[in-house]
Every structure is written in structure tokens, then in C-alpha cells.
Amino acid sequence: IHPGPKKAYAKIVSNLLLAEPEKIYAMPDPTVPDSDIKTLTTLCDLADRELVVIIGWAKHIPGFSSLSLGDQMSLLQGAWMEILLLGVVFRSLPYQEGLVYAEDYIIDEVHSRMSGLRDLYLCTLQLVQRYRKLRIDKEEYVTLKALALANSDAVHVEDIQSIQKLQDLLQEALQEYESSQHWEEPRRAGQLLLTLPLLRQTASRVVQHFHAVRAQGRVPMHKLFLEMLEAKM
């Protein structure tokens, strides 16, 4: 047995692993008493900072930076909540109770209910359970996250062929990774791709919720978060 040349997929997956952002902390303000507003403010602030990081991360996806600026924007505007959510879900896998928005901000069902987030908590937990059952690994997580971006079904797209090429490249990377690392589960790549509809559906519910929060006007939101929320009207 000889290892042979490093396969193209392995390079893509290892690039995606290297592109994984550093941890971000929620840092809830200790001087402010706990309330639903505090929780939502902390989450919106965290999301705003994560968005900056996600935009930087996207540039490391092979082929993304070659897309037109307009198409890069469209993909990010379409998929940002799916990417944020997938991060929360992956971080939450080892925890039996609670969603790990950040290592310093784990929210359980009681805290979620008090913040008006119980429905979102339960549907996000459904995603956690789905990935837990699949025993998704980090390589699969980073590839699926890039695929969610490439597959955002953005409405205003200039060069659909280049986006299709990006999707094909990432899908191929996932399939080849599975054939090599999980060869005993021939349907695994398909099973992972079949989680994407639930991810989109859940992301859509989260966006709707934050549209309503925004309309109430009680929670301060930073500009980038607002901008991305507005793109999903």
C-alpha cells in the first residue's frame, strides 16, 4: 500500500479546516441584570462580530474570491444565518442540554423560554440531534458549511456557472472524503446533504424572529447585522 499523491479533495478539506475561524466569545455585560433584552442584545452583538469573521472565512473557500463581488455578496446574504446556525449546532454537539452560542454563552431551555426563544431553541435542537445521530466530524462540518454558502439559491446571481462550479467542487470534496474516510457508509454524503433543507428552514425561522425583534425596536443591533437582516426581507 502506498499513499499516492494527495488528492484534490483532501487539499480542499484541509484548506477549509485551516480557514476555520478562532473562537468568538459572547462576553455578556456583567453590569447589566439578566433579562430577555440582555440575552437578545448579547446574541445580536455576537452575531454581528461573527458575521465579520464569516465574511473573512468565505474568502478562504477555494474559488469564492474568483466570483464577482456581486455574487460573493449574494451568496453571503443568502446563507449567513445557515452558516451562523451550523456553527452553533456543531459547538452544541457534545452538550446534552443547551445551545452553545459561544463557549461563554450556553443557553438552556429555561433561559431560552425566558428570552422568548423557546421555539427557536427546540427547532435548533432538532438539528443538533440530526447531526449527533450522524456523528458529523469536523471535516464534514467545514465542508457542509462551505456548501451551504455555495448553495444559497441567491436570487440575484450574475454568473450561475461559476457558482455551479463551486458547488460541484465542494460536493466532490465531500463525496471523496466520505469514500476515503467513511467507506463503510456509502450513503453518508447523501445523508449529510439531506440535512441542508432543515438547516435552511431553521435559519429562515431565526431570521423571521429577529425581524420581529427588530420591528419592536427594544434591542440595539449593529449595522452589519441589520444590513444582513435587511437583505433577507
Partner: peptide, 19 residues
């Protein structure tokens, strides 16, 4: 792009979020 100027700028320049 006018409505999405922070995203536009971050993609072009990589500067931090305009808070």
C-alpha cells in the same frame, strides 16, 4: 451595494465591522 455597504467594504478590504 449602497444598501449593503459594510458587506461590500468587508469583502473588498477586510476592514472591521462598522459599529
Amino acid at each position: 451595494t449602497e444598501r449593503h455597504k459594510i458587506l461590500h467594504r468587508l469583502l473588498q478590504e477586510g476592514s472591521p465591522s462598522d459599529i
